[in-house]
């Protein structure tokens, strides 16, 4: 309260107004993209239609014809969902063991897992292309993209789950062990129901990272398994001819994730700082 009492009347208006102004500036590019998506390609580059124009949904209706949008969107959805499910499937048991039955190596394993995240992807670009193209023959398949997305997010998933599992009181686990519940039952009956919120936000964040991934999804696909990242990258230089339709397809590509992101902004801190910021 003391702080509020100190701020002058001018400050009470000025600082919030500044906060509003800055947030509007930050949101402006997204707003601009969405606004442009309602202009025709011709209107989009005319200064006289900068703000006032006749809105049209034509760009959205033509997304399939212009860009084959839905094929890429379905690829993004499939790969992101399965990669998320797969990394939870592999990550939940592992983080359960690390949280509730730690050994002296657990800390090192966790740190090591994190370190795999820090390898620059570009360093292994050619080996990955080589293995998947010449050796495993899975280049440009959904399977490959799911596998890669799962692997690059697995460390984050395990770390997030680990921090959520840590929050479950030890007494509950100990009591159930006294009652003779086995490991499997413990995981299924106690941990998962108790950490449900944590699981959901881990899954959500993993899904967001998968959807936005822009290195492997571009470099390891040509057509069959190409995602939205690849679609937008492939249309990088419209030279002003197609601002309207490009804005529409871009808006459609980011809208689901920006909206999902609003719901998990708090969990983001946990997921991105590996529990080091509280």
């Amino acid at each position: 309260m003391a702080i509020v009492a100190q701020t002058s009347n001018l400050g009470k208006i000025f600082w919030p107004a500044l906060a509003w102004l800055i947030s509007i500036i930050f949101f402006f590019p997204i707003f601009w993209m969405v606004l442009t998506s309602f202009k025709t390609d011709a209107d989009a580059v005319k200064p006289e239609f900068l703000i006032f124009f006749k809105p049209t949904l034509e760009n959205y209706f033509n997304m399939t014809d212009n860009y084959d949008y839905w094929r890429f969107a379905i690829n993004s959805t499939i790969t992101s969902i399965f990669a998320t499910l797969f990394s939870l499937f592999v990550g939940v048991p592992a983080s359960y063991v690390m949280a509730f039955n730690p050994t002296k190596n657990t800390k090192n394993i966790l740190i090591w897992m994190l370190s795999t995240k820090m390898l620059p992807a570009a360093a292994v670009l050619y080996p990955m292309t080589f293995i998947t193209k010449n050796f495993l023959n899975i280049y440009d398949t959904h399977f490959l993209i799911i596998l890669v997305l799962c692997l690059i997010n697995l460390p984050i998933v395990i770390w997030m789950l680990f921090t959520y599992f840590k929050e479950i009181p030890k007494e509950i686990i100990e009591a159930s062990r006294m009652d003779g519940v086995n490991t499997w039952g413990e995981l299924k009956e106690i941990i998962i129901p108790l950490a449900w919120g944590g699981l959901a936000s881990t899954a959500l964040l993993c899904f967001i990272f998968c959807w936005n991934e822009a290195y492997w999804t571009v470099r390891l696909t040509t057509n069959e398994a190409a995602t939205l990242s690849k679609l937008i990258e492939g249309n990088r230089a419209p030279e002003g001819l197609f601002f309207g339709r490009l804005s529409a397809v871009s808006s459609a590509a980011v809208a689901p994730i920006v909206i999902l992101g609003w719901f998990c902004q708090r969990q983001l801190v946990k997921g991105l700082t590996f529990g080091a910021v509280k």
Binding site: F27, P29, N212, A214, L228, I232, R236, V254, G261, W262
Partner: peptide, 16 residues
């Protein structure tokens, strides 16, 4: 409003 840019996919960010 402030957090939104973080969720825009990198290729859309660059093209935009």
């Amino acid at each position: 409003l402030l957090i939104s840019p973080f969720f825009v996919m990198p290729s859309v960010n660059a093209v935009l």
